[in-house]
Design a protein around this nucleic acid. Structure first.
Lengths: 209, 209, 209, 209
DNA sequence: TATGAATGAGTTTTCATTCAT
DNA sequence: TATGAATGAAAACTCATTCAT
């Protein structure tokens, strides 16, 4: 099978898994939506669960965050790194929100324990730890106040996650919209509003006066 | 069926749904875990989906938040209301974290559209709007800065949700623990740490110097 | 339980069985429709099947046809007996059409073999045989032609059954009506039309010129 | 699945549905009788109800009656058309008596309303109307008396249906047989007797002297 | 490599019936 | 006598997976 087709299946599966959940989606539906043969999915991915793992792997390799490099970067001040993190996070998570929702579901439920461990240890935690390191660096350098680095990280990540959680909630909260067709995630003004809020919030929280 | 038994089934189902998802949990499992006859669940709740709705209803009526009263309360200053909200939210959400996870899953996925609308309109959104109102009141009174009330609310809610999301992530982030038996949600020091972080964060963000 | 209540259940069950079939009707539905306790039906009739038998018994004793007496009656000529049979049959079957449909279903299918034998031997066949006897008597007396008495009986019974079979078919055929609320069986003009047709048909067929 | 296997399942289902009713027959039984996997029936027909619809469709396309052509045929006189109709009907209905019983059950009960409408409008009524047309043509041409065409049609159809209704009733009435193994529908003498009776009956009823 | 057909184990749901009171 | 609660058995249906080609 061409790599293109494999990718096509993965992208189709991400959307379905994200909106219907892993057990709520049948490989029959995925096959139909991706316009491929039902048996092919098992043939090429091995099983439904392996398909899920392939999705994780594919995304992990295609959208790795440059956070670790950011941490190492000596040309930027800690607060500049924080701003860069906010900008990067918002762009990336808003763009891959379905994959992100997938991950979150997998974290909330934990049927596939080893996979969850993998996700936490290799995807979620490293990113959070990198942000924490930036904050710790700022504290050490005397730029930042003696805040709780881990919880500050959680606030940053949690705010974005809360927005990504539910289109409906997000629309109601940020646009007072009940229109089911409105997509707040592709509204640049929403993105800017979030960016500004987070930067303001964290500057106040982190920077010494 | 006695109300006790009905409640027992609901509480059992919440835990299972929360950890394995709605589709990932069979009513067989629920029946076994609750030690009741398989057919009884359908007999008394009508269907698996109706059981889910019963859970929402039950929880909505048993754990209604006193937020609206807090908004109306004239004896408290806006910042005191924010502090009370943080204290109340943390206690309540930590205590009902499984139900809370259930709700979040339902929001991420949206197979049951009308139920989701119900949850957003009647449970999630009213609480968030109440918090926003407190912030707006503070701004009007001149106590608070001209922040974004909605996004500030999202930060408050999102931080707690992020912590509740995954025990594993929370343990790693807040206790550096890989022990699968450690429960950070019943660790008072964790709760206090979160409380202090949120109060500090929001005081800085909201209060005029 | 009062006899009235028992009768009420039976009458309710007849209507449900007639329109949804025996296996297509649950005793739960019957209990709900008759406004009685579900367990009571089993308690008083023993089982669903026994309820069915009770229906047969009840109807057999409450609407027994006077055909046998008609056969014996020496004051009427054979053709007068035929006319009386037509009149009586139409009135009775049109009035009890739901019970009649019940019986017909039971004859088409034959899951309950002994009950079917009972119905044929004690309800259906005796009536048909009585009509055949009248015809045979007419032949013997020289009033009637040498027709096939059994098949002539079947034509008489079959014509009425065909009309009773399906309200929709009957409405379309006899009234050109597609109105789902129209009830041809309570339309006196329809009954008269059927009566006249059958009498004309059988007079021509039976009577010597 | 091969068309043969599909046909095999349909034919098996017709027999079971005809003798036990639709709700009285489980797809398990059908699968066992047809020697196919239980899941395959749902897999290929979609559901039990869809299987039923497939049966109707299959039969409708495989045994369409040539009645409409008969109506148009100008080389035959009306009474010749009637005779041809009788011959054709008897052969066809006797041959497909199980499917015919199926249809009749579906007409008596009416759980599946739209399907019933389909059957009446597309299968039953067109045939009856075609026969009525022949009779009307005979009346117009002056060959036939001014009879009731619709009721005369019902008599023709109803007589055959009455015979097909129940093997037991038919055996007792036409052969005085209580032998449960006797099949009157494959007895040529029975068929001839019915043919002759109907022709005699209708000739007398229709033809001017 | 690719796929239509097939299947066994699982699901939810419905049912007639029985039980405890 | 009467009934709300409970239950075992069976129903229809769905599913991921495998097989034969």
């Amino acid at each position: 099978m061409s790599a293109d087709k494999k990718e096509h299946i993965i992208l189709t599966a991400i959307d379905l898994f994200a909106t219907k959940g892993f057990e709520g989606t049948s490989i029959r539906e995925i096959a139909a939506a991706a316009n491929v043969n039902l048996a092919m999915i098992n043939y090429y991915f091995g099983s439904k669960e392996k398909l899920f793992e392939s999705i994780i792997e594919y995304k992990a390799s295609h959208s790795r965050v440059a956070l670790e490099e950011l941490v190492q970067d000596t040309s930027l001040s800690p607060i500049q790194k924080i701003d860069a993190t906010i900008d990067g996070y918002i762009d990336r998570l808003f763009g891959h929100r379905n994959f992100h929702r997938l991950i979150q579901q997998e974290l909330i439920t934990h049927t596939r324990t080893t996979l969850q461990t993998h996700i936490v240890n290799n995807i979620i935690y490293p990113n959070s730890r990198a942000i924490s390191h930036i904050i710790e660096e700022g504290i050490q350098k005397g730029d930042f106040k003696e805040v709780d680095p881990r919880l500050t990280t959680i606030t940053l990540v949690g705010t974005i996650n809360q927005i990504l959680l539910s289109t409906r909630y997000c629309s109601k909260m940020l646009s007072n919209s009940d229109d089911p067709d409105y997509n707040p995630y592709e509204d640049e003004s929403v993105k800017n509003r979030v960016r500004n809020h987070l930067k303001l919030l964290l500057h106040e929280h982190l920077l010494k006066k």
